[in-house]
Nucleic acid binder design. Structure first.
Lengths: 228, 228
DNA sequence: TCGTCACTGAACGGAACTCGATCATATCCA
DNA sequence: TGGATATGATCGAGTTCCGTTCAGTGACGA
C-alpha cells in the first residue's frame, strides 16, 4: 500500500457546505476562484473583517454567485478550510515522494516541513488553526479534523514503520498532531516566516513524545532516503 | 515573595477596552452583569453568533448601555476574555493555597487543575482559547497572552523551585503553556466534562517536557504539601 | 434643587442574504 | 449543421438583520 494511497487525497468526505454541486466546467472554476479570493481576503484583513462583498469583488463575481454556492459567509470559510487541509495532505504526500521517509520520525519531519512550507507560500493558510476550534460549534457530531488526520497518519505509521496497531496509537498520534499544530501556529503568530525556535522545538517535542512510546528501535526503513 | 504576589492578580495591565470608567457603584455592577451575560451567550450560541442585542437582553439592559461601556462588539468579548484570564490566574493561586506545591511539577498540576475546574464551572470559559489566536490581528505589537502568563509562571518556577533563571526558561514554559492549552481545549471539544484521557496525557506531556530539562532533582520543596 | 452620571430605544448605516430577470451552455431534433 | 429549447450560471437591486449612534429621560449625589 503506497503512502499516497493511504493519504488518499480524493476520498475527502467533504462536508455539506456546498449548496449546488457544479455541473458545467465554468462553475467548478468559479468555486475555486471564490476560495482563492477568500484566501486572499483572509491574509488581507483577517477572518472577522471578511465581507461577502469583498470575496465576490476579488473573485470578479457578484454577490449572488457567492450565495449560489455557499449558504452563508461562514460556509465559505469552512470550505476554504477544507481545501486548505486537503492541500496540506497533498503536500505531505509530495514531501514523502521528494524524500521518502526511512523511519517514523521522518514522517513527522515531512509533516512539519509541509505545514511550514504551506504557511509560507499558500495564501490564507492561517485558516488552518481557526476552524479546528470553530468547527465544534457548527457540527457537534462530526469528528474533529485533527482526529481524522491523526487516524490516517497512524495507519501510515503502523503499516509502513511497524508501530503497533493498537487503539492507543491513534490517540497518541492525535496528541502529537494537536501539540504540533499549536506550536506551529504559535511560530507564525508574530513572524510571517515562522519563528524557527518554535518550529525546531515542535519537531523535537513531537519526536520525543512518540519516541517515549515507540523508541528509535522500532523503525523499519523500507527504502533508503534520497538526498535532495 | 509569595506565590500570590508573583501572580499579582491586581496588576492586570488592562487593555483600553472600557469606554467609561464606572463612577457610581451601580455601573460597576452593570459592567460585570454585561460580562456575565456575554459569557452565558458564548455558551449558548458560540462566539460568532453573539449579537449585542442578545447581550443587552440577557443583562436586562438596553443596547445603548452596552455601548456606554464598550466601544464595539469585539471589545465586549475581549473584556470577557481578560476577566476569564484573570479568574484563571486567581484560581491557580487558590490551588496553590489549597495544596501548596512542593515541587515544580506540583505547580504544573495546580495550573492544569485550575484550568479544568474553571472549564467545568465558569460560564463562557471556552473563550480562553479563541482570543489567544484572535488577538494577533487586533493588536500587532502586543505580546501574546500565553507569553505573558508563561513569563509569570517562569518567575515562580525560578524563584521558588530553583529552576535556572535563564531566558530559555521562559521560552520552555511558553512551549509548555501552548501545548497544555491546546490539549486541554481538545479535551473539552466534544466532552463538556473534559475527556480525562486528554487531561491526564496533558499533565504527563508537560511534566515530561519540563523534566527533560530540569529533571526531578532540581525540585526544592519549600513547605510540606497539605493534604486536602 | 441642580448637575452629573446612567439609561433608553428609535433611527441610521452597512453588511448578510434573497430572488426574479438575464445570459451562457448543453441537448435535441429537423 | 443550425436553430429551438431547457437548464445551468450570473447578476444586482432590494430586503432584512445587526452593529452602532445620539438626543431625550430617569436616577443619584451634593
Amino acid at each position: 500500500m503506497s503512502l499516497a494511497g493511504l493519504f488518499d487525497v480524493d476520498s475527502a468526505a467533504t462536508g455539506q457546505q456546498v449548496r449546488a454541486e457544479p455541473i458545467q466546467r465554468r462553475s467548478a472554476e468559479r468555486l475555486s476562484t471564490l476560495l482563492d479570493a477568500a484566501a486572499e481576503a483572509v491574509d488581507a484583513v483577517g477572518f472577522d473583517r471578511i465581507t461577502t462583498a469583498m470575496i465576490a469583488e476579488r473573485a470578479g463575481a457578484s454577490i449572488g454567485t457567492v450565495y449560489r454556492y455557499y449558504p452563508d459567509r461562514v460556509a465559505v470559510l469552512q470550505a476554504l478550510h477544507e481545501r486548505t487541509v486537503l492541500r496540506f495532505r497533498q503536500r505531505v504526500v509530495e514531501e514523502f515522494e521528494a524524500s521518502p521517509p526511512a523511519s517514523w520520525w521522518d514522517v513527522v519531519d515531512c509533516a512539519v516541513t509541509a505545514f511550514v512550507g504551506l504557511y509560507r507560500s499558500e495564501p490564507g493558510f492561517r485558516i488552518m488553526q481557526f476552524a479546528d476550534r470553530e468547527r465544534a460549534n457548527a457540527a457537534e457530531g462530526v469528528n474533529v479534523e485533527s482526529g481524522f488526520f491523526a487516524t490516517r497518519l497512524a495507519i501510515v505509521l503502523a503499516d509502513r514503520f511497524g508501530l503497533p496497531d493498537e487503539p492507543q496509537l491513534i490517540f497518541r498520534v492525535e496528541i502529537a498532531v494537536e501539540m504540533a499544530n499549536s506550536l506551529l501556529c504559535r511560530a507564525f503568530l508574530n513572524d510571517p516566516l515562522g519563528d524557527d525556535r518554535f518550529i525546531d522545538e515542535c519537531r523535537r517535542v513531537v519526536h520525543d513524545y512518540l519516541a517515549s512510546f515507540y523508541g528509535a528501535a522500532v523503525a523499519v526503513p523500507v527504502a533508503p532516503p534520497i538526498a535532495v
